[in-house]
Design a protein around this nucleic acid. Sequence first.
DNA 1: TCTGGCACTCATGACGTGCGAGTGCCAGCA
DNA 2: TGCTGGCACTCGCACGTCATGAGTGCCAGA
Lengths: 338, 338
Amino acid sequence: MLSERRLEVLRAIVQDYVGTEEPVGSKALTERHKLGVSPATVRNDMAALEDEGFIAQPHTSAGRIPTDKGYRLFVDKLAGVKPLSAPERRAIQSFLDEAVDLDDVVGRTVRLLAQLTRQVAVVQYPSLTRSTVRHVELLSLAPARLMLVVITDTGRVEQRHVDCPAPFGESSLADLRARLNSRVAGRRFSDVPQLVQDLPESFDRDDQGTVATVLATLLETLVEETEERLMIGGTANLTRFGHDFPLVIRPVLEALEEQVVLLKLLGEATDSGMTVRIGHENAHEGLNSTSVVSVGYGSGGEAVAKLGVVGPTRMDYPGTMGAVRAVARYVGQILAES
Amino acid sequence: MLSERRLEVLRAIVQDYVGTEEPVGSKALTERHKLGVSPATVRNDMAALEDEGFIAQPHTSAGRIPTDKGYRLFVDKLAGVKPLSAPERRAIQSFLDEAVDLDDVVGRTVRLLAQLTRQVAVVQYPSLTRSTVRHVELLSLAPARLMLVVITDTGRVEQRHVDCPAPFGESSLADLRARLNSRVAGRRFSDVPQLVQDLPESFDRDDQGTVATVLATLLETLVEETEERLMIGGTANLTRFGHDFPLVIRPVLEALEEQVVLLKLLGEATDSGMTVRIGHENAHEGLNSTSVVSVGYGSGGEAVAKLGVVGPTRMDYPGTMGAVRAVARYVGQILAES
DNA sequence: TCTGGCACTCATGACGTGCGAGTGCCAGCA
DNA sequence: TGCTGGCACTCGCACGTCATGAGTGCCAGA
C-alpha cells in the first residue's frame, strides 16, 4: 500500500500536469506544493509510483506524467466532486428555464455543458422506451393515407405516415383514436405491445387491415426510436489541444460522427451514479487518450437518458464531474416540470 | 484582357494547387499540363497574372498559389460544374429514399453531402414560413392546459403547451380544431395571421380568452421557428487540413457553434442558383481562408431552405458544386413525394 | 527514513550551411 | 512581336552540430 505522502505526491502531479500540460519534475513539485520534504525524497516517491504504474516519463530525463491508472486512483481516492458556485447554479437554472420545447432544452443543455467544462458535450434525447405515452393522434391526410403522431411525457413528438390497405372512414378513425388513447395514454412504451394486441378484433372486418397497419407502425416507431438521437456541442473546445492534434482531435471528431460509438460510450454509464472512463478504459480504440464523464438524468427518480462530456485524459476531473452532475440534476428538474 | 493561354495557365495552377496543396512552379506546370509552351513563357504569363492579382507567391522564391480573386475567376469563367456519375446518383437516391421522417431526411442529407464532398456539410431544416400547413391539432392535457401541434407539408412537426385563462370544454376544443383546420390547412404560414384574425369573435364569451391564447401561441410558433434549425456533419473531414490548423479548423469549428453565423453564410445564397463565396467574400472574419458553396432546395419549384458545404478556399470547386447541386435536387424530390 | 550532493541523460533550441526549386531578366530566333 | 533557352540570384528548408538545462538515479551521511 502506498503511504499517505506518496498519494499526496500523486495528487500534486495530477493537479500540476492538468494545469501546465507539461511533465512535472521533483523540484517544481516541492516549490509549488507544501509537501514538507525535499526534492530528493519526492524523487524516491516518484520512483515508487512509477514502479506501481501510476506515473510514467515520456522519455528519460523528463518529468513525470500520470498514467491512466494514476488518473483512476486520483478520481477514485484523491479527488472529490467540486460543487459549482452559487452564481453558476443560478445561471444554469435560469438559462434552462427559458427553454420552450424539448429540442430547446437539449440544445441549451449541450451548450451549457460545453461552456462549463470547456469540453465537448454530448446529450442523449430522453428515451422513448422508458418514458410514457401522453397522447396518440391520428390524422387523415388522404382517403387511404394517415399520419400517426406520438407524444411522450418528456415532450417528444414522433410522427409517421401510414398507407392503409383500404379506405378508412372518419368515424372509424375517431373510434380508433379514442380506443388507442384509452389504452396506452400514461403507459410506458415497453408495455404498449401487449396493451394493443387484441385491438383489431373489435373493428369491422373492412377496417381490420388498416388498424393492424397502424398498430404495426406504432410499434415500429417504438423500436426504431430506441436507437436514440444525440446532440453534440462544444467541438470548438477541441482546438484548445492544438499540440497533440492526432491523439485527440481527429479521433474525437470521428467518433462524434458515429452515433453508435457515442451511444456505446454513454451507454457504459450506470443508471445510478456518475461514470468516468479514462483512456484505455474506453472500449473504442482511438479514444485511448480521451476520458468520458457521463451520468444518467431523468424527470423522476429514474434515468431516461444520459449526458456527458468527452475530453483529453488530462482534464480537470473534479470540476468536470461537478458540472456534469449539476447540469444533469437541473435538466431532470426541467423535464419533470414541463 | 487576359489572353486565352494565360487563363489556361491559371486553370492549371488552380487544379495543381488543389491537388498537391503546394505552391506550383513554372517547370512543374509545363510537365504536368500540355500547354505547348516552355517554362519561360509560363513564367511571363505568371508574372502578368500576379500583376493582375490572380495569383501570389507566399515568399520570394517559391511557386505561385491562387488568390481569392484567382479562384473567383476560375469558378466564374474556367470551371464548369462537374456532374456526378450515374452510380453516385443512384446511391444518393436510394440512400435518401430510405429516410423515415424529416429528421432522418435531413440527417441523411448532411451525411451524404459530407461524404461526397469530403468537407463539412450544413443543411437547414425546411422553413416554416415558406411551407404550408398540413394540419393543426389540439389536445387537452388538463382542464386548463392544451397542447398545440402544427404539422407542415414538409413533414415538420412543432408543438407547444398552452395554458388557458379558463377551462375549455371538449366540444369547444373540437369546434376550434375543426375551424382552425378549415381555415389554415393547405395555406402558407405567412398567410395564417390574417386568416385567423376574426376567429375569437365567433366563440362564446367564456372561451374567447382561450381561443385568443391558442392563436397567439400558433402565431408565435410561426415567428420563433423562422430562426431556423440546422444540422451539421462531416466535421471529421476538417482533420484533412492538419497543417494550416489555425487558419481553417479553429474558425470553422467556432463558426459551426454559432447558428447565427452559419445561417448568415447560407442566407447569402440566392434562391435561384448556386452561390460560391470565396475567402474574404464571406463577411464573417476568421472564415477568410474558407469557401462556402450553398444552394436552395425545395419540394416544389420554390426553395424552402438551403444547404451547402464549408471548406478551405483550396477546394475542388467543380466537384463540390456538382455534389451540392445534385444532393439539393434529390432532397427536393424526396420532400415533394412525402 | 530523509537529505544534500554529484554525475549522467537527453530533449530542445540556436546557429551555420548546402541544396534546390523557383524566379526575373536578357539576348537570340521565328 | 512573341516565344525560348540560358544564367545569375533568392531564399525557404532540411540537416548536422553544439551548448543548455531540467530532470533523473544513486549514494553516503544525518
